[in-house]
Design a protein around this nucleic acid. Sequence first.
DNA 1: CCAATAAGATAATTATAGCTATTTTTTAGG
DNA 2: CCTAAAAAATAGCTATAATTATCTTATTGG
Lengths: 230, 230
Amino acid sequence: MPDKMTANNRGKTGRGRGQAMVDDVELNTKTEPSQDRAKNTFEAILSITGDLLVEVGFERLSTNLICKRAGITPPALYRYFPNKYAILKELGDRLMKVQDDVVIKWVDSGGLDTGSLEEEIASNRRMMAGVLDVTKDFPGGAWVLRVMRVIPLLREVQMESRILVADKLYEGMRAKYPNVSDERLQTATLLTTDAGSSAIELAIEEPDRAEAFLDETSVMVATYYHSFLK
Amino acid sequence: MPDKMTANNRGKTGRGRGQAMVDDVELNTKTEPSQDRAKNTFEAILSITGDLLVEVGFERLSTNLICKRAGITPPALYRYFPNKYAILKELGDRLMKVQDDVVIKWVDSGGLDTGSLEEEIASNRRMMAGVLDVTKDFPGGAWVLRVMRVIPLLREVQMESRILVADKLYEGMRAKYPNVSDERLQTATLLTTDAGSSAIELAIEEPDRAEAFLDETSVMVATYYHSFLK
DNA sequence: CCAATAAGATAATTATAGCTATTTTTTAGG
DNA sequence: CCTAAAAAATAGCTATAATTATCTTATTGG
């Protein structure tokens, strides 16, 4: 039986793989969109992916679903992203960036220049509220945080961000706690960053207790650093 | 063209669904294995699932792969577990149980009956080391923790455990910190449990710094609780 | 307004995932 | 040692995931 020659199957076969290769994948975006229409598509893919994470979760998220919701077809999506993980990576990069920016601005604007424990708690708390805000505003923010944990390549994105933030904090702390070893201070910044991130996740999950989570985490972290002075 | 009647396709069709329904699934185990052989199969499925999580990650984990590695066929697996998530849930249940047991034993054996801050730090540190140990011994322990975050139904398992542990801690703390409100103490136990869990994940991910992570987390948590005395 | 290029649509392909009806083999109790 | 129940194997099915070759439509710089 000869090949059926329909309008779009001219005897050459497609080469879908059915499953993405999770290792060895290129994760960077492809063509940067130049036209306005394309920029909209690009952004729509990202924001819809975030929305879908909230609606259907990570397991049910698929490129086909994203396309359907965005009103585009797969080739349009694959013009910008080489694969599904690249979309998630872009989301991860962006979320980390907005979170990092909050912390960096906080440090640069003197968030660490505090005296009393009470001041430190309050300053810390303000920073955490800022991080919570940008995360809540981010489409699917909490889900992006979770997904980053289960995809090794995205975990690296997160760790890079953690290190960036921890370094920034370290820089500001170094002068403040001169008699604490470099190593200890580095460990401390990493741990408190992680604890803060966990608290943010909890706060989004249980909005009713969000205030309490921020309050207590601020107390915990500030009290901890304060103990370095002794 | 008539149906091909091979040895096992007798004209009735199978009814595979191709994708699991992530919502609305039964997650409990089915037949409890009675024969020894069956118990081995049951345990093999669980421990191999843990191993595979480490080897290939969550995304590549599939029932077919588990079967292949366990030397069984899908129907054997599906005799015990109604679907893939039930396997993960059993792993989650078990990991939470061994972790919880460490904490409960620690409380019951007087882990909270400490006086000085130094004693509290040391006691806390012993408990965390215990939790780290059982988690490291658990096949795929760190991965199970991660996976629980991205599958809502498993997240519930984790939250139930958190609440159990937090309640146990709360019980012990209630007497120790009489002038702290119930609500605040509950928030505190939940947050410190979460922070501890994050630290365990970090410790497994970066074994070289595991000691430091436990040390500092103990300090952070103990210092925080200690501040309640003021 | 037209050519070049960007953006998107059509229509499939392949792989593999989850799962199962049915038959065969083990196991263990009488 | 024989038989009923338990356990596992045979051999698939169906759905859907990711992805693509090719063609068409929009956009824009000249």
